[in-house]
Each structure stands twice: as structure tokens, then as C-alpha cells.
Write a protein that binds this DNA or RNA. Structure first.
Lengths: 155, 155
DNA sequence: ACCTGTCTTCGGAAGTTTCTGAAGGGCGGC
DNA sequence: GCCGCCCTTCAGAAACTTCCGAAGACAGGT
């Protein structure tokens, strides 16, 4: 088996994993293609051919991945096609979406607390929930700061 | 509008949010019911009636939530029904599932690295991915430790 | 202003998930 | 050991998601 095929297999496996974790299947496959390609950037047409799917599907996936902040457009003078590549901090950005989740959980707990009586059982549970997400809300950004610091130091 | 209805509305909204974040709809509704109830524990039948869904659905949701570790069975002498309640550390456990995700991402990056040539572009990207998840893999458990410490100190 | 190549949008088909309702299994009390 | 209650499992229906392919929009070059 060629190294080429080997990598394609790894790419497909990784895509499957990402889709297990909630990413749409097509976005996951596109993501994996960006990770494993030897080209510095890819176009919609290249992706559609490589993955053997319609350009329409790739278009949707690209839109999503740009929206999440994992991809960036690369200017390529003389080419009419859009060139895309993985952002260096793609994974950090993917994980950062947790911040939004945490923020919403906090808000939901807060709303619940406001709607419950002084010493109801429900309030106690909602307070536990609030405290945990409040903690994460404070700490996750600090964690990312430390990561960036570490990475920058390494470079 | 009664406080009762108000809380039900909050519960349903929270359930909707949880399902946005990937939890199955039924599990999310059951979860929300546990959060907002004034009873110290709930049975399958109570849940099915409260949520107006089949017992079969509730059975599946309970199984999942126990599996994730968010619920615990409560012994109630003299009752033939199973009584369940939210674990105190339910949210921490829910979030902890990220550990597994992180571990798998690390493993996938590693596999990719092993399959790429010494200074291929792909290897560079996979190494970035690995480094990030490796960092998270080390740090998340420490973060949880600090949370538990803080919570215990508070009590 | 048109032509050409590229990208996006969208209706509908195919696939997947989720829920129900009914049947069956298990356990405690008698 | 049988009865009755409770829970789980499963097949099928319903709802939702995802993908394709065609049509149309857009932009650059001439």
C-alpha cells in the first residue's frame, strides 16, 4: 500500500472521529483533507475531486469551517479560484467554542435560579450548576492564554 | 402565570439548549426535569407522565444519563420503583467527557504523524494539532482538581 | 456589455435518528 | 411457584439531516 493511500485512510478515520464528536460529516472530511494534504492550500474544485463529492457539498462545508474560524482564505494572485487553508490555531478555535457553551449554561442556570424559591431543592441544584460553569468560564480563557504562551515560547 | 409553569418553561428551554449542544433531545428533557423538580428523586413513571412521553423513551434516556454518570439510583425502602436523582457532580462529569475526546484527537494526530514524511507540510499541521491536545490532556484534569478543591473549601 | 469560469443556493432524494407502543422479562410479595 | 407491577427491548413510523445536481449569481477579462 502506498503512503498516499495510507494517509487517505488516516484522513478518513480522523473525519469519522470528528463526526462522532458532532461535526457534520462533510465538514469533517473537508477538515481532514486540509490536515493531510501536501499542498499549501486547496480550492473547492480540488476538494470535491479529492473527496469525490459534489461541489455544492464542499461549498457548504467550507462555509461552516470558515464560520467556526478553522480555515482562512489565502490570496493567490493570478488564480480566479478561492484558495483555503487550515489556520494555524484551528484546534484552539474549535475548542474555544466551548466558551460559548459554558456561557449559555451559566445563563440558563441563572435564569432558573431567579425563577425558584429561596430554599427550594431546585435552586440548590441550579446553584451547583451555576458554580461549576462560572468556574469554567473564568478558567478556560486563562488556560488558552497559557497555551498560547507556551506555544510562542517554543517557536 | 404560575411559578410552576414558569419553571417548566425554563426546564424546556434548558433542554432545548442541551440538545443544541449535542445531547439527545429526550435525555436533555429528562435532565432538565431532574434539575427543576422539587422532589428529591424521580421514577421512570413520574418522568414519563411529567414529560408526556412513552416510558420506553424515558427508559432509554435514563440509561444514557446513568452511563454518562450524571444520575444515580436512590434506594427507597418499600418502593418497588427505581428512584433516580441528579448527582451532585453531574456537570463536572458531563464536561469530563471532553477528556475522552481530547485523548482520541491526540491519538489520531499521532497516527497521522507516524504516517507522514520527515518534513512534509502535513506533518507540521498534525504536530500543531497534537501539541494543542497534548496540552489540554495535561491541563484539564488539573483544572478539575482545582474545581473540586474550591468547591470543597466552600462547603 | 458579454462571455467564461467559479462559487453558492435550493428542491428533493436518500439516509439516519428518534420516538412510540406493544411484547416480554425480572423481581418481590404472597 | 404464581401474580402483579415495573422496566427494558425492539420493530416500525415519523421526523429530521445530509447530500446531490442543476440552476443561477457573481466577478474578471476582453
Amino acid at each position: 500500500m502506498s503512503a498516499q493511500n495510507d494517509q487517505r485512510r488516516h484522513a478518513e478515520e480522523l473525519a469519522l472521529m470528528l463526526s462522532d464528536f458532532g461535526m457534520q460529516r462533510m465538514s469533517a472530511r473537508v477538515m481532514a483533507a486540509f490536515l493531510f494534504t501536501e499542498k499549501p492550500s486547496l480550492t473547492l474544485g480540488e476538494l470535491a475531486e479529492e473527496l469525490d463529492v459534489s461541489q455544492g457539498s464542499v461549498s457548504g462545508a467550507l462555509k461552516t469551517l470558515h464560520h467556526v474560524g478553522m480555515l482562512e482564505r489565502v490570496p493567490v494572485p493570478g488564480s480566479r479560484r478561492d484558495h483555503h487553508r487550515l489556520r494555524r490555531d484551528a484546534w484552539e478555535r474549535l475548542y474555544s467554542r466551548q466558551n460559548e457553551v459554558v456561557r449559555k449554561m451559566m445563563a440558563a442556570a441563572e435564569a432558573g435560579i431567579a425563577a425558584t424559591g429561596e430554599d427550594s431543592l431546585a435552586r440548590g441544584r441550579l446553584q451547583e450548576m451555576y458554580d461549576f460553569y462560572d468556574f469554567m468560564f473564568d478558567e478556560l480563557p486563562l488556560l488558552f492564554d497559557r497555551w498560547r504562551e507556551k506555544r510562542d515560547a517554543r517557536d
